[in-house]
Write a protein that binds this DNA or RNA. Structure first.
Length: 421
RNA sequence: GCCGGGUUGGGGUAGUGGGUAUCCUUGGGGACUGUGGAUCCCCGGACCCGGGUUCAAUUCCCGGACCCGGCCCCA
C-alpha cells in the first residue's frame, strides 16, 4: 500500500457531496454579485511569486526545477495568477469582476485548518477604487457564509492600511513594515513581548503603550472615527475614514452584521494599500475563515500597468472545521437516487430497459446486476447510496407499473414509469 | 525547519518478550424462492518502516515516515 503525500487529503463521496455543494454555493453567490469565473494553471513560473514576496514565502512553496530547467511552483496563492490574466487582457471593460476556486499548495507543516493542498474561493475586482467595490468584495464573502448557514456565527474584522500607517508614523516608527508585522501577531503574543517589541520599533515605551491600548480596542465598525479620536485626538484621518465608513454603511444596508473595527487586523502581506479585513468565527476558536483587502499597486508590479484592485480568499479547511462544529457539514438534500432491483432472472433485461428510459428522462439510477432474495437486495440497497429502490418482477412486467420503495421511510407504492423523477 | 502526543484488518478496538493476535463493525459468498433493509452459516482482511538489544520483538530502545495538535509563517 502506497501512502499518500503528507498534508494532502483524499475525499470520499460522503465528503465530496458536501464539498460540491459548498463550491456550488460559492459559485452561486459569486454570480449573484456579478462575478464571472476564470481558471489558470496549477503550475506557474516561480518568478510570478518572486515579484511580490520575499524569501520567506518562496521557501514555503511547492517548487522545483522542471525538465526544461525552468524554476516552477505549484501556485501558493491565487492573486498573482489572477493579476497575470488581467494584465493580458487590456481590452476588457472595467470594472472586471472575477472569481475562481483553485487548489493551492504550500510546503509547510500541516496543522489544524491548514493542509499542504487546499481549495480557496477567490474573488477580485479590478479597475474600481470606490468604497462600493470594497463593499461588494466583503459582501460576497459574507453572503457566501450566510448562504452556508453561518449567519451570526462569524464576524468581519476591518481595518485600513493607510490609517495604521499614519498612526505608526505619528508614533515614530523606525520600520513600518516590521511594525505592522508585530501588530499582526498582537493576539498571539503576551502584552510584555508586545510592549518590548513595539518600544523597540517606535523608540518610545510611552507610544508603544498608547498603541497597545489602541490595538486592544475592538469596536463597532460604525464607530471608527470615534475610536481613533479617543486614542489619538490630534490625528485627522477624516478623509480615510470617510471611505471606509461608506463601505461599512453599504454593507449594513445590505443586512450584513457583525462588522467590527479591529486595529490589530493588518494582514501580513506587504502589498495591501487600503482596506484590509478578515473573517473569524465568533468564538475566535479557528484561524481566519477568509481574508483580503485592497492592493492597488500589485497589478503594476506584475503586469506593468497600475490598476485598482480589491479581493479576498476563503480556504476550505477552516470553513470545514466551522461547518462541522455547527453540524452543517451534511450531505444536502438532493435528487433521488434509484436502485432497480430485478426479482427474477427473467426480469433483468426489463430492469436494464427501465434504467435506460429513466436516464433519458433525467432520473439518476443504477441497476442491481444479480438476482438475490428480496430481503438481501433491500439490504444492499439500504447502504446509503440510494434513496429509493425500484422493484421489478414478473408482476411489474405484466402491469407496466413498478414498485417504488422509499428506503428511508419504508413506504412504497405502485408507480408508472413517467411518475418517477 | 522546530516541539508534544499518537500509529494493531476498510473503520473501531483487546492483548502480549515466545505458540493459529481478541472482539465489534464493514466487505464478499451462501441458506432463506415478492418485502424479517432480518436471522443463521462460511470467507477475506492488521501488529507503519528500518536498525538495535535478545535464543526470540507486534511488544523494549533508537531513527524515519505518516496522523493529530502547537510554534514559525501566513497566501
Amino acid at each position: 500500500m502506497i501512502e499518500k503525500i503528507k498534508g494532502f487529503r483524499d475525499f470520499y463521496p460522503e465528503d465530496m457531496l458536501v464539498r460540491e455543494n459548498l463550491f456550488g454555493t460559492m459559485r452561486k453567490c459569486a454570480r449573484l454579485f456579478g462575478f464571472l469565473p476564470i481558471d489558470y494553471p496549477s503550475l506557474e513560473l516561480l518568478d510570478l511569486f518572486r515579484t511580490k514576496s520575499g524569501d520567506e514565502l518562496l521557501s514555503q512553496t511547492y517548487s522545483f526545477t522542471d525538465k526544461g530547467k525552468r524554476e516552477v511552483t505549484l501556485i501558493p496563492e491565487a492573486t498573482p495568477s489572477t493579476v497575470r490574466l488581467m494584465g493580458s487582457r487590456k481590452d476588457l471593460p472595467r470594472p472586471v469582476k472575477w472569481y475562481s476556486i483553485p487548489k493551492l499548495w504550500r510546503y509547510e507543516e500541516p496543522q489544524s485548518g491548514r493542509t499542504r493542498e487546499h481549495s480557496q474561493f477567490n474573488a477580485d475586482i479590478f479597475g474600481d477604487s470606490s468604497p462600493e467595490a470594497d463593499a461588494e468584495i466583503i459582501g460576497l464573502a459574507c453572503e457566501t457564509l450566510e448562504s452556508l448557514g453561518l449567519k451570526g456565527s462569524f464576524e468581519v474584522r476591518i481595518n485600513h492600511r493607510q490609517i495604521m500607517e499614519k498612526i505608526m508614523n505619528m508614533l515614530g516608527t523606525k520600520d513600518l513594515v516590521a511594525g505592522l508585522n508585530i501588530i499582526d501577531r498582537y493576539r498571539k503574543e503576551t502584552r510584555e513581548n508586545m510592549l518590548e517589541e513595539l518600544t523597540q520599533n517606535l523608540g518610545s515605551s510611552k507610544n508603544a503603550g498608547l498603541l497597545i491600548e489602541f490595538l486592544s480596542d475592538k469596536s463597532k465598525a460604525s464607530e471608527i472615527a470615534k475610536t481613533i479620536h479617543k486614542h489619538f485626538p490630534s490625528l485627522d484621518l477624516s478623509e480615510l475614514v470617510k471611505g471606509i465608513d461608506e463601505t461599512i454603511r453599504i454593507l449594513e444596508s445590505w443586512g450584513y452584521s457583525n462588522l467590527v473595527f479591529d486595529p490589530a487586523t493588518v494582514r501580513g502581506l506587504t502589498y495591501y494599500t487600503g482596506i484590509v479585513f478578515e473573517g473569524f468565527d465568533i468564538n475566535g476558536k479557528y484561524r481566519s475563515i477568509f481574508g483580503g483587502g485592497r492592493y492597488d499597486n500589485l497589478t503594476g508590479l506584475i503586469s506593468g500597468q497600475d490598476m485598482a484592485a480589491v479581493g479576498f480568499g476563503m480556504g476550505d479547511a477552516v470553513l470545514e472545521n466551522l461547518l462541522r462544529e455547527k453540524e452543517l457539514w451534511v450531505i444536502p438534500r438532493e435528487r433521488s437516487r434509484y436502485l432497480i432491483i430485478p426479482m427474477k432472472e427473467e426480469t433483468r433485461k426489463y430492469a436494464l430497459e427501465l434504467a435506460g428510459s429513466l436516464r433519458k428522462s433525467g432520473v439518476d439510477c443504477s441497476t442491481m446486476n444479480n438476482v438475490k432474495s428480496l430481503s438481501n437486495s433491500l439490504k444492499s440497497a439500504s447502504s446509503g447510496l440510494y434513496t429509493h429502490a425500484i422493484i421489478v418482477g414478473p408482476k411489474e412486467m405484466e402491469t407496466g407499473k413498478v414498485t417504488v420503495r422509499d428506503l428511508s421511510s419504508g413506504n412504497q407504492e405502485e408507480k408508472r414509469m413517467d411518475e418517477i423523477h
